[in-house]
């Protein structure tokens, strides 16, 4: 079986995987990083979004071997010790989560939105950019508020 090496949340990791192993499976099962979730089987829901080499990807759509040699960031890699990342803090402050299942994907997508669109985001941009992440709980209202507030806080 192939061996993959990558840097996940700043830590070098290595593992033996099947050729068909998805990145999300590698993260969850080999590394025990269960914050990244699987909500569908057609790359639609966005629960599994992580960053690979600084860009958001749906980790159910990438083979683990395709991420060989990459820098991967998951939801577990955002906080600084006990201090939440400003985007995580914004989700808490604005009640941007309920059951928490879509939340890691939402936060990772939100960070990518900020990376590409800057810190001053309007509602319309956030809504359009979040169309690849499905939430059944919140009705999106507070997620949009969270992303907008988190983006601003990241610029402060």
């Amino acid at each position: 079986m192939p061996i993959v090496n990558m840097n996940v949340n700043g830590n070098p990791v290595t593992g033996e995987v099947e050729g068909r192993t998805l990145l999300v499976q590698f993260l969850r099962e080999n590394l025990g990083l269960t914050g990244t979730h699987i909500g569908c089987d057609t790359s639609q829901c966005g629960s599994c979004v992580v960053h690979v080499d600084g860009k958001s990807v749906k980790s159910c759509t990438l083979l683990a071997v395709m991420a060989d040699g990459s820098e991967v960031t998951t939801i577990e890699g955002l906080a600084n010790g006990a201090e939440l990342h400003p985007m995580q803090q914004a989700f808490m402050d604005n009640h941007g989560l309920q059951c928490g299942f879509c939340t890691p994907g939402m936060v990772m997508s939100a960070l990518d939105i900020v990376n590409r669109n800057g810190n001053e985001l309007d509602e319309n941009t956030v809504r359009k950019e979040l169309a690849g992440n499905i939430c059944r709980c919140t009705g999106y209202h507070n997620i949009v508020k969270s992303v907008t507030a988190g983006a601003k806080a990241m610029g402060d």
Partner: peptide, 19 residues
């Protein structure tokens, strides 16, 4: 009040059955 449960969900430490 800010939710007591949020911290674990936000840092990827929720514990769902498949986890």
């Amino acid at each position: 009040v800010r939710r007591k449960e949020d911290n674990r969900f936000l840092i990827g430490k929720g514990r769902y059955t498949d986890d």
